[in-house]
Amino acid sequence: MKKSFLFISCEEAKHICDKVQYNEATGWERFKLGLRLTWCQITQKYSKQNNKLTESMDKASVEAMTLNEKEELQKSFESELAKYQNQP
């Protein structure tokens, strides 16, 4: 039997759910995910956990160094480190 064009697999639903966390899912994808969420408990559980993680990340305002910042730090640290490693 041919699958409905509205049907998505659990894996696909999880993938869309991940994209939703970054606002990268299309309206059509959101709609298909919404349909699956009405009956699939696995997707519901994954979606709940995923949303909770995003909320926590937003609430904590976690920060990291940008690639450039880290590169600069690495450079200055390496020159200092070399001095210590070259010591007799």
Partner: peptide, 21 residues
């Protein structure tokens, strides 16, 4: 990238479930 993100998010959500939520 999306496979890596999926694995990371799953592991992080489980870890946070055990340690924080």
């Amino acid at each position: 990238l999306w496979v890596i993100i999926h694995r990371a998010r799953t592991a992080l959500a489980e870890c946070m479930e055990d340690n924080w939520f």
